[in-house]
Design a protein around this nucleic acid. Structure first.
Length: 194
DNA sequence: AGGAAGATCTACT
DNA sequence: GTAGATCTTCCTA
């Protein structure tokens, strides 16, 4: 399967978020390989998005959002690491939050990273998936368009998926438009409705 | 130094 | 299903 090229991420975050659904996130861990299908995402913008980490302008910890499209932007919230992929049009600011995966390879290892959780709770939330794939600050800034990276995203198998949208989860002040996208009737989506 | 933060787990009704 | 404690950085004072 081919790795998604950098140009894939050089578009409006909402478009990238929508098109990332059904793609495969791969985590290389030594000789092991963990992977999962992306089933839920959210788009975040820059200075005009109150929920965005970039809202208050460029800081040291968020500067990735301003430049390197196609890289991982990882930060901690409430004791959980959250994985974003930097994505925006040229000269713009933004990122896509990966909210949920459907586990594929390395399920046993993922279960070991967490505490022997049931399969449908393994990666159905942004903090859970990061833990299951051993994603931490160490991977911040990693290039997901490089197959040699410890973390990258590949084209999934072509399949028909139905995409739903909703407002974003857990944000204080949301934008009027729907910026959360997920695959309809997929049981690994964190919150099917709302 | 103190608090907020894009969440999760546990313990209840 | 809903409520509350707790998770660990970074930001602001």
């Amino acid at each position: 399967m081919s790795v998604l090229p950098r140009s894939f991420y050089e578009r409006d975050p909402a478009i990238v978020a929508k098109e990332l659904l059904g793609k495969i996130l791969v985590r290389r861990l030594g000789s092991e390989s963990l992977s999962g299908k992306i089933v839920e995402t959210e788009a975040y913008y820059g200075e005009n998005d109150p929920a965005s980490k970039a809202y208050k302008g460029r800081k040291k910890f968020n500067e990735l959002m301003f430049f390197d499209v196609g890289k991982a932007f990882i930060y901690m919230v409430h004791g959980n690491w959250l994985l974003n992929i930097v994505a925006h049009a040229k000269g713009d600011v933004g990122a896509v939050l990966i909210r949920a995966l459907e586990p594929q390879e390395g399920v046993e290892i993922m279960q070991r990273q967490r505490k022997a959780n049931s399969l449908n709770k393994l990666t159905s939330g942004p903090g859970m998936l990061a833990k299951a794939l051993a994603i931490t600050k160490e991977l911040n800034g990693i290039d997901v368009t490089e197959r040699s990276s410890e973390l990258f995203i590949v084209e999934g198998v072509m399949e028909k998926i139905q995409i739903c949208s909703s407002h974003r989860i857990g944000v204080k002040i949301d934008l009027p438009q729907d910026l959360r996208f997920f695959i309809m009737r997929n049981k690994f989506v964190s919150k099917p409705r709302k």
